[in-house]
Simulated scan of single mutants.
Amino acid sequence: MTIDGPGDRQSKNQRREAAREKAKQLREEQRKKEVRNRAILISSLSVVVIAIIVGVALVIVSTIRPAGPGPQNMASDGIQIGTGFVAETTPALAAGEDPVPTVNDPASGTVDIRVYLDYMCPYCGQFEATNNTQLGEWIESGAATVEIHPLSILDRSSLGSKYSTRSANAAACVANYSPDQFWDYNSLLFQNQPAENTEGLDNQKLKDLAGEAEVTAQGDIESCIDDTTFRGWVADSTSRALEGPLPDTDEAKVTGTPTVLVNGEKYTGSLTDPDAFSAFVVQVSGEAYSTATPTPTPTAG
């Protein structure tokens, strides 16, 4: 039989002490690890919270962004084209200022035609292709004025390029810097109208068309198109048209494009028959100005 001596008992005590020390070290390392993990978790959560706050702030800022100033010559939210294709000049709307409806003199015998349109709207394209020539003849002769209101309703149909906004902004740029070329530019936008559910014309093409319209201040217009200078006004004027009221008419608001008003009466006839629209104009102008001249006459299709 072997009996443990004093040296053996001391060795066992030392081993116990070493085990306790090792356990203590492990507990301390575990504690430090937990502290580090907690710090990392808190830091990560802080980053996420900050990102959420920034995102929400951006949404709020974009939602309540201050209204931008409008273009010159569109104080009514539209530009009126008169005899010789000369635009009615008006000052720019200040930021947040309400539009000023165009005032027409019934005694003048001139027919007041207003068109609310979207440059991506295929029905607007049909109306334009059908009636551009006779509208131009009425304008040139002084028989009618045409007031054009560009809207941005179909941004969702341009694959993220916001073509309705960009094209309406481009039109506003021309109205601001070269108003007497607006009629030609408006016509070119429809002659080159893109199909729905495409990206639409790029900014370079919009600038090229301004050159084709022989605008003045080409450089200013190109910068205005690239910067979408009047995008805030486009959004505001579109909201005003969709919410109403529309001035000088019993129509409460725009419910679709094109909305065409002749002396305040809405045209609901064919978009592809020029005689139908001409007859409507003659009827309405005859009701309002039974003795006035000149009066638009039907144009053969």
Score class of each variant (00 low, 15 high):
T2I: 13
I3P: 00
D4P: 15
G5D: 13
G5H: 10
G7A: 14
D8K: 14
N13Y: 07
A19S: 14
A19R: 15
A19M: 10
E28H: 13
E28L: 15
R31M: 08
K33S: 12
K33W: 06
E34R: 14
V35Q: 08
R38H: 11
A39P: 00
A39N: 12
L45A: 08
I52H: 05
I53D: 04
G55S: 14
I60Q: 00
I60F: 03
G68E: 12
P69A: 08
A75P: 00
D77H: 04
G78A: 07
G84I: 09
F85N: 07
T90S: 09
G96E: 02
E97G: 02
V100C: 01
D105R: 05
A107H: 03
V111D: 03
V111P: 05
R114N: 11
V115G: 02
M120R: 06
M120F: 06
C121V: 11
T130R: 07
Q134E: 13
W138E: 00
T145E: 00
I148F: 09
I148L: 09
S158Y: 04
L159W: 04
K162G: 03
S167Q: 01
N169D: 13
A172W: 05
F182N: 06
Y185H: 04
S187H: 12
E196M: 12
T198S: 14
G200Q: 07
N203G: 10
K207A: 14
A210H: 01
A213M: 03
A213D: 02
E214K: 14
V215S: 09
Q218T: 08
G219D: 15
E222A: 07
S223M: 10
C224R: 10
D227S: 14
F230C: 01
V234P: 04
S239K: 15
R240W: 03
G244W: 08
P247G: 01
T249K: 02
T257Y: 08
Y267Q: 06
T268Q: 15
S270E: 13
A276R: 06
A276M: 03
A279V: 07
F280K: 07
V284D: 00
S285K: 06
G286D: 05
A288D: 09
T293W: 02
T293R: 02
P294F: 08
P294D: 04
P298N: 12
T299D: 01
